[in-house]
Design a protein around this nucleic acid. Structure first.
Length: 350
DNA sequence: CGATTTTGACCGGCGC
DNA sequence: GCGCCGGTCAAAATCG
């Protein structure tokens, strides 16, 4: 099976009517104007805790998203040392569950027109008190050529970073009965609703979504004692886009391991890193000791080819951690987390 | 036959 | 208190 070369971002996202341009930083992270200003000054990659991508095309893409590329001026652990405080203080802003913004934690967000977000966002900010944090990742369609594996890698990095940053939900009330796990949403251009991501899921529910012709599916990780869930639904404004929202942390390694080649091994490391980063959300004291530094160290060698393809030379062969006493690598193909953002047909082409 | 999906019922949070 | 809505349960159906 040949690796697909020169996969464009637009192949993944397509010519969506939901242009990423429609979703400014604020809409992505659901920030108030003040927070957005802080984020702008800090830099997107600062927020991610990634400092070594200054010259990367990926950064250019992100920068084009009104995200300043000043991460090189910030210390690697800017998150923990910066004046803006810990991430959860930045991101735990009143969200807009019924908002027209795409960043809203509740799924209705993706069903409305992004252009209407300003007014409605303001209104909803007044009416909505708080909702779980959600991180929406969106790779801009720049016509930039990525290898398919590069795209996977990039998204793994991003997911990993969000995990590392340890965004936590701030309890709505001190005696809140139910506290949600951090949630991460991915928007995927795909004809397939449920995309392979390396984990095994069992569907436990499906609900009709208000103001949307598309139902929302609920999945739970089939691994015993792993309470990770995910929701899958289609964007109302663009049915070709699938929004996958993850909630919780896997307590086990991905049951699907990569094939034994270079890229696969890197992706495998990334999976581990992502998994580890997620676990760090609950163990912040270990974050600096065991994860952040290894992460940035391993990210440093990241480089891009002259044609813009991302060489998967970062994330050393070594694993950042051993997520558990799981079985050794299987012969199964890597369908890691990032494959949630890739159409299944692309995955099959690998 | 076990695993998975389907689907209506049920529950809890929230706004009015 | 009531209704709406998101999320979950669980029995039945389906799949491999």
């Amino acid at each position: 099976m040949e690796r697909k070369e020169g996969v464009k971002v637009e192949d993944v996202l397509g010519n969506s009517s939901c242009s990423v341009n429609d979703f400014p930083l604020q809409s992505i992270f659901d920030l108030s104007s003040n927070e957005e200003e802080k984020i702008r000054s800090l830099g997107f990659m600062d927020l991610l805790g990634v400092q070594d991508l200054i010259s990367s095309p990926l950064l250019e893409i992100m920068a084009a998203q009104q995200v300043p590329s000043r991460m090189a001026t910030q210390p690697p652990n800017a998150f923990s040392s910066t004046k803006i405080g810990p991430p959860h203080e930045v991101f735990n802003q009143p969200a807009t569950p019924n908002s027209s913004t795409i960043s809203s934690a509740s799924s209705e967000a993706v069903h409305d027109e992004p252009a209407k977000l300003d007014d409605q966002e303001e209104d909803q900010r007044k009416t909505k008190k708080q909702c779980p944090i959600l991180k929406l990742i969106w790779i801009r369609n720049q016509g930039f050529d990525f290898h398919q594996s590069d795209l996977k890698l990039i998204m793994k990095i991003i997911f990993c970073c969000f995990g590392v940053c340890g965004f936590r939900l701030k309890p709505k009330k001190t005696n809140q009965k139910r506290q949600r796990e951090p949630r991460f949403a991915f928007m995927t251009k795909s004809e397939v609703d449920h995309l392979e991501d390396g984990y095994r899921w069992r569907k436990y529910g499906q609900k009709a979504v208000k103001n949307s012709p598309f139902p929302r599916s609920y999945y739970r990780c089939t691994t015993i004692s792993c309470n990770v869930k995910k929701r899958v639904e289609r964007c109302f404004s663009d049915p070709s886009i699938v929004v996958t929202t993850y909630e919780g942390q896997h307590t086990h390694p991905s049951p699907v391991m990569p094939r034994p080649n270079l890229v696969g091994s890197h992706l495998n490391s990334a999976i581990s890193a992502a998994s580890f980063g997620m676990s760090m959300q609950t163990t912040p004291s270990h974050y600096h000791q065991h994860f952040q530094q290894p992460f940035t160290d391993n990210l440093s060698p990241l480089n891009f080819g002259h044609n813009g393809s991302l060489n998967a030379t970062f994330l050393h062969q070594k694993r950042f951690c051993t997520p558990g006493p799981g079985p050794g690598p299987s012969l199964l193909k890597d369908h890691g987390l990032l494959q949630d953002i890739l159409p299944s047909h692309m995955l099959k082409e690998e």
